[in-house]
Design a binder for these strands. Structure first.
Length: 314
DNA sequence: AGTAGCACCTGATTGC
DNA sequence: TGCAATCAGGTGCTAC
């Protein structure tokens, strides 16, 4: 599933293929893919028509293209005020065609026709399970005046991203802030990792991987996580994502800007996720899998001890 | 305020 | 064989 490393791979692909292009035409094949657009597909298309994709920016799993008015780059005086935002949900993919595009794929939810100096291109948004979306919306300034995300120095984020925390690989993120937020409340630590308002970019797979690496039980109450443990956990989150990024970035077709979670990192290098019953590579104990808070959760009961102030063991 | 739970949706897989 | 139940997942909303 697309988590931070996969979305970053998509972002860099799109940065090279569609940034600088002008939107010539917008077609929505499935209106629910623009369900966040108050005025529906009509408004979506109208706000995009004729605008230039000025950059490809990412915060956590959220992706957007600031929209500039048409005109040569050096003529543009105003900073972008709007953006085309995208979230890939669990199965969203972008595909770019150069020249003439084929008939849209069965899972294609929207098609954006582009004009570029290299000729026409087509940007397709595919999404089998339809949890993803596109929306054209207004940019809002960041409170700290720092860049809103990876891929642009613009200190702004789209409206739908204002409540999303900076991600674990954001150089403007405050470690102390993230550590403090990870330790607050009664929820299990895994739920904090998945809470995109605490630190963004982490999904179910990397949450399990980071907890395994940090030897923390997913259900340890946040308030029972020490500052040192939270810091170590954040380090593990970064390590696992950087490793995934290094692998995911090498193995995708440039024009099929692939976010299929099964590409790259997914099936190769996982220590906990999807390994129920298999031996823990650290201690040899069997990896356990259980549904926790509605999500499949994988951990090593020997390495990741349950927090139990009274009962002696899990 | 913080937390829990459900809706959203499709296709693959499993069960009867 | 055919149909129904189950599962996978992230986010946004509602309800306590």
């Amino acid at each position: 599933m697309p988590e931070l490393p996969e979305v970053e791979t998509v972002r860099t692909g799109l940065a090279s293929l569609v940034v600088g292009a002008t939107i010539a035409d917008v077609e929505v094949y499935r209106p629910s893919c623009v369900r966040l657009q108050p005025g529906g597909e009509g408004e979506f298309a109208m706000r995009l028509q004729g605008m230039v994709l000025d950059a490809a920016v990412r915060r956590g799993k959220f992706l957007w293209f600031p929209l500039a008015e048409q005109g040569a780059e050096e003529e543009r005086v105003d900073a972008p005020e709007a953006a085309l935002s995208a979230h890939l949900g669990m199965s969203g993919q972008f595909r770019v065609f150069e020249g003439e595009a084929p008939a849209p794929h069965g899972h294609c939810r929207a098609r954006i026709r582009l004009e570029t100096p290299h000729g026409p291109r087509t940007l397709d948004f595919l999404d089998q399970r339809t949890f993803g979306y596109l929306v054209a919306e207004t940019l809002r300034p960041t409170r700290d005046g720092l860049p809103g995300g990876q891929g642009s120095d613009l200190a702004a984020v789209p409206g739908s991203v204002t409540h999303i925390a900076r991600d674990a690989l954001d150089t403007a993120a405050s470690d102390a802030e993230i550590v403090s937020r990870l330790r607050r409340g009664t929820r299990g630590i895994k739920q904090l990792l998945l809470d995109q308002t605490v630190v963004s970019g982490i999904g179910n797979i990397y949450a399990d991987e980071a907890l395994w690496a940090a030897r923390l039980h997913p259900e340890r109450p946040a308030h029972a996580v020490s500052a040192a443990q939270a810091r170590e956990l954040l380090d593990c989150v970064r390590a696992v994502m950087r490793r995934a990024l290094a692998q995911g970035g090498t193995s995708f077709d440039a024009l099929y800007v692939n976010v299929n979670g099964e590409s790259g990192y997914f099936s190769r290098d996982l220590a906990a996720y999807g390994r129920a019953g298999e031996p823990c590579e650290r201690c040899g104990g069997a990896i356990r899998s259980e549904r926790i808070g509605g999500r499949s959760t994988h951990w090593c009961p020997r390495c990741q001890r349950r927090f139990s102030p009274r009962t002696p063991r899990d």
